[in-house]
Computed example of a mutant assay.
Amino acid sequence: MPCMTTKTAIVVGAGIIGACLAYRLARAGLHVTIVDAGQAHNGASGGSWAWLNAVSAGDKSYFDLRQASLAAYHDLEKELSGRLKIDWTGALIWDPGLYSPKVVNAPQKNWGGNVKTVTADEIRALEPLLTSPPDGALFSADDGLVDGAYATRTLIEAAQSIGARCAFGRRVKSMIHENDRITGVQTDFGALYADVTVLAAGTGISDLLAEHAIPLPTANRAGLLITTAPVTKRMTRALWSDTVHVKQLSDDRLVIGENDHAPGALDNPEATITQMIETTQKLLPALGMLSVERTTIATRPIPGDGFPVIGAIPSLHGAYIAMMHSGFTLAAITAKLLSQEILNNEESPLLAPYRLSRFAQ
């Protein structure tokens, strides 16, 4: 049975996790306020390649969670009449961290994923713009690609259309703690109160927990993304090569990320940007000379063991947490399951490995 005393909620953070949660909670009938120091898609979500996948999970339970999120995205798309504009054409992957030619069947295939190894000829057929493909790769056919900024804004607008309100430009300084319960947040523009407070503020979560002596080790990592001017030819798949990852948006712009930045690479971003562009032009020469339109450097929120942290915050009744990388992949299932936990006071078995309490053990 729903918890009828929960009528209002504050979601701290207007990235993809916060946007999805706000939509789900508002759709369930709660009065939701989204609070963020900036605007929608202002933090880590703004620096995400926004790849929806399960193939990068090396752990079976984590793979299951990511697969469930892909299914939840399909449901979300139906609810929103396709407005998220997710491209489900899959990805070709030959990054050595995810693919080895010595491994005939990827573990994800054995776990039920729609993943297969492909030869150079098959790669050419899947992505004709790759004139010099690798000898082999993984093809993850069920992967989705989304314009991160657009999807986040769309979800926030959908939440607003059913009653959610936004308090942007307000930095959350602390949670309000009264009688062993969190009753809201203190911002630099005053207090906001609600029955439930959900922390979805990425790297900002640790400071809010530290005030209550709650440990949350992190391995946060900065990343750089390049968005190019539109190109004249269309890619048919996303590519995660051994050096860069490249996808194309519906407006023909490319979004390029580097797989692993060398130590100090972001201290001199101009050199790194030049190298990424040159690498992409070599990978996809048919696209011609690429022009950089925008670059983004963002810090990705990564819990210390690399796995998500989702659920109620022990000892702080009324407070919940949702912190993870990859936020885009996991946003749909996180919002679905966490909103159910908030409304029904029943924990989801799928989230059992990802509780904050594991760091207190």
Rank of each mutant, 00 (worst) to 15 (best):
V104T: 05
H177A: 11
F139I: 10
P353F: 13
V55T: 13
D142Q: 15
L25G: 08
H74M: 03
I34F: 12
I176F: 01
E346Q: 15
D180W: 04
S161Y: 08
T152W: 00
A167D: 01
L155R: 00
A331V: 09
I123W: 02
M276L: 00
A222F: 07
D180H: 15
I273Y: 02
E346Y: 13
D36Q: 03
A312T: 08
A9M: 09
A158C: 13
S174T: 02
G327D: 09
K336T: 13
P215L: 04
A271L: 04
G90I: 00
H212F: 15
R66H: 09
A194H: 01
E178H: 07
K116P: 11
G112C: 03
A332W: 08
E122F: 01
M175A: 00
L30N: 01
T197H: 08
H31N: 14
R253M: 11
I297T: 02
S69G: 07
A191V: 11
L208M: 01
Y320M: 03
I321L: 15
W240A: 06
A28L: 14
L356S: 01
L254N: 10
G257Y: 07
H245T: 05
G13W: 06
A331L: 00
S69A: 04
A201W: 09
A68C: 05
L129N: 13
T119F: 12
D87K: 11
G113F: 08
L129C: 03
Y150N: 10
A213S: 04
A40H: 06
L25N: 02
G144R: 10
L356C: 08
Y150C: 03
V244M: 09
A151S: 15
G18D: 05
A9N: 07
V231E: 04
D95G: 09
A194F: 04
A222D: 14
A19M: 04
Q39G: 14
D142R: 02
P128Q: 12
K109P: 08
A19W: 03
M235P: 06
W49V: 00
L76G: 02
P128L: 09
H31S: 15
A120W: 09
H31V: 05
I123K: 10
I342R: 08
G113S: 04
T279G: 08
G13H: 05
N259W: 09
A158M: 07
D75Y: 10
H325I: 06
L316K: 04
P308Y: 13
K173Q: 14
A191G: 02
S241V: 00
Y62P: 12
A222P: 05
G38P: 04
A159M: 03
I93Q: 05
A120V: 05
R181L: 13
K60N: 14
F168V: 10
G13N: 12
E157I: 00
Q340Y: 09
L98M: 08
T154G: 03
G43I: 05
P349S: 14
G46M: 06
G311P: 02
Q160E: 15
L283Y: 12
D75L: 01
I123M: 11
L92H: 10
M1N: 12
P107L: 06
E127L: 00
W51L: 01
V104M: 05
V35W: 06
G29H: 09
L239R: 02
L337R: 03
L343H: 02
S241N: 06
